[in-house]
C-alpha cells in the first residue's frame, strides 16, 4: 500500500497561451495524515495548486496521482474524485437559500444516497463538535463569519473526504474570529485528517503543520518542517517573505 495519498509530478498550469505561468513545475508527495501548509507571496500559485488537486483546474502538463490513480485520466469520474477532496474557501460559500442543516445534508443525501435521518444525525453530531448545533435550522445570513466558516468545514466533512483542502480559510474573518476557526482545524488535524492548507497564519503553520511548502513564481522554492523552515529559511525569497509576515 502506497503511503503517499497525493503525488504530484511536474505539474504546470499556464494561462493566456503560456504567457502566465501560474504553476511552473510542481513536484510533491503528501502522506496520509500530513498537514501540509502552503505559504508564499500573492500570485505565487497557491490557489491554483490547491484547485488542481480537486480538478477545479485542469493542468497544462504534469500528473497528479491520488491513491495511485491519475486524476486527469480519461476514466476518472471527476465528481466522485471531488467527493473525496473536501474544500473550504476564503469566502465560505454556504448556500444562502438553505438552512445550515440542509447545507450539510444535501450532498450526502443526493450523492451518496444517505437516508435523511442518518445524514441529519451525522450533521448534527458534527455541528455539536464545533459548538453550533443550536444553529442547525438558521440560515447562513444569521451567522457570523467565524460561525459560517466552521459550518463550511463541517459541511465538507459530511462527505467523509480523504483529504481536506483549505484556501485561506481565515483571511476574510475579523481578527477575533480567526481563533475559533483555527481551533476546529487543529482538532481536525489531531484526528488524523490529511490536510493541505493555504494560510497566512504563521502561528498555525508552526504549531499544527507537519510540513511547510514555500511557493514562489509557480514553483515550490523550499519545503521543510515548520521548525526548520521558520528557524533557517534557505532561500533569499523565503527570508524576505518571512521578514514581512512575521
Amino acid at each position: 500500500m502506497n503511503d503517499n495519498i497525493i503525488q504530484v509530478r511536474d505539474l504546470k498550469k499556464h494561462y493566456g497561451n503560456g504567457k502566465i505561468k501560474a504553476l511552473d513545475g510542481i513536484d510533491v508527495d503528501i502522506r496520509r495524515g500530513e498537514v501540509v501548509v502552503v505559504i508564499g507571496p500573492s500570485g505565487s500559485g497557491k490557489s491554483t495548486f490547491l484547485r488542481s488537486l480537486n480538478l477545479m483546474e485542469t493542468p497544462t502538463q504534469g500528473v497528479i496521482l491520488v491513491d495511485g490513480v491519475d486524476i486527469n485520466g480519461k476514466r476518472v469520474n471527476v465528481n466522485l474524485h471531488r467527493q473525496k477532496m473536501g474544500m473550504v474557501f476564503q469566502h465560505f460559500n454556504l448556500f444562502p437559500h438553505m438552512t445550515i442543516l440542509k447545507n450539510m445534508i444535501k450532498a450526502p443525501m443526493t450523492l451518496k444516497k444517505m437516508p435523511k435521518a442518518e445524514a441529519e444525525a451525522k450533521a448534527l453530531e458534527l455541528l455539536r463538535r464545533v459548538g453550533l448545533e443550536e444553529r442547525a435550522y438558521d440560515y447562513p445570513s444569521q451567522l457570523s463569519g467565524g460561525q459560517k466558516q466552521r459550518v463550511a468545514i463541517v459541511r465538507a466533512l459530511c462527505m467523509d473526504p480523504d483529504v481536506m483542502l483549505f484556501d485561506e480559510p481565515t483571511s476574510a474573518l475579523d481578527p477575533e474570529m480567526v481563533g475559533e476557526v483555527l481551533d476546529v482545524m487543529r482538532d481536525l488535524a489531531r484526528g488524523g485528517m490529511t490536510m493541505v492548507v493555504v494560510t497566512h497564519e504563521m502561528g498555525f503553520a508552526k504549531e499544527v503543520g507537519t510540513r511547510i511548502l514555500f511557493m514562489d513564481g509557480g514553483t515550490i522554492l523550499e519545503q521543510n518542517t515548520p521548525a526548520e523552515f521558520f528557524a533557517n529559511p534557505q532561500t533569499d525569497r523565503a527570508k524576505e517573505f518571512l521578514s514581512k509576515v512575521l
Binding site: N79, R82, M85, M87, F89, F95, H97, A107, T110, L111
Partner: peptide, 29 residues
Amino acid sequence: DAGQFEAGRSLGFSYLQTMLYIIIPQAFK
C-alpha cells in the same frame, strides 16, 4: 456568486445538479 458554483462542484455535484439545487433557486429569486 461564482463561489456558489465552485462550492457545489467541490462537494461533488455535477454541473446539472449544481445548477438545479444551488444556482437556479438563487437566480430565480
